[in-house]
């Protein structure tokens, strides 16, 4: 089984059934997962921040880092693999976006990430059918390309599926 490990700001896709796409320890970052049932392609982006306007050079170098550059980049890569270029027919799932206990909103970066991603998906006419967002713990995510099965894990908790 091939393992594709995505770090912060990375994105990637595979249509090899033996592959697994994995990302470790999402905190406030959000993992966007696209599953294309038609071509059996799976893609994921590990998004750190909502908006690339704070550093466009970084967005050019690592598009997966920001919501507004990651989603077009992932769709483009999957488009080149035979999927619809605007994500038509794809299944979308989201996870991550944790927060720390903050009553004045500044540190609700996980929530802002999730919101920015949802707005962007909406502009493509896409929406998540499943999500595991928020909370106060880190998540590791693994997807098997063959089954499209998403497994989440967090220290001290039993694994769960999305």
């Amino acid at each position: 089984m091939g393992q594709i490990i995505l770090g912060v700001g990375d994105y990637g896709a595979s249509n090899s059934p033996e592959d697994e796409i994995k990302t470790f320890a999402l905190g406030s970052c959000v993992s966007v997962i696209f599953l294309d049932p038609k071509s059996r392609t799976v893609g994921m982006a590990h998004i750190a921040l909502p908006d690339s306007s704070i550093n466009s050079a970084k967005a050019a170098e690592k598009p997966g880092y920001f919501a507004d550059s990651a989603i077009p980049a992932l769709l483009k890569q999957m488009g080149a693999m035979g999927c619809d270029k605007r994500g038509k027919g794809m299944i979308v799932k989201l996870c991550g976006g944790a927060n720390v206990m903050d009553t004045n909103d500044t540190f609700q970066i996980g929530k802002r990430n999730a919101l920015a991603i949802k707005k962007l998906l909406w502009s493509y006419g896409m929406g998540a059918i499943a999500e595991d967002l928020g909370g106060n713990y880190s998540r590791t995510v693994a997807i098997s390309v063959a089954a499209g099965q998403i497994t989440l894990s967090s220290p001290g908790k039993p694994n769960w599926q999305l």
């Binding site: 470790f24 320890a25 905190g27 944790a98 970066i109 713990y137 880190s138 001290g156």
Partner: peptide
Amino acid sequence: MLGGGGTGSDSMRY
């Protein structure tokens, strides 16, 4: 911790 650089089970639980 928010950036995913915690030390495991205690991350963000403060």
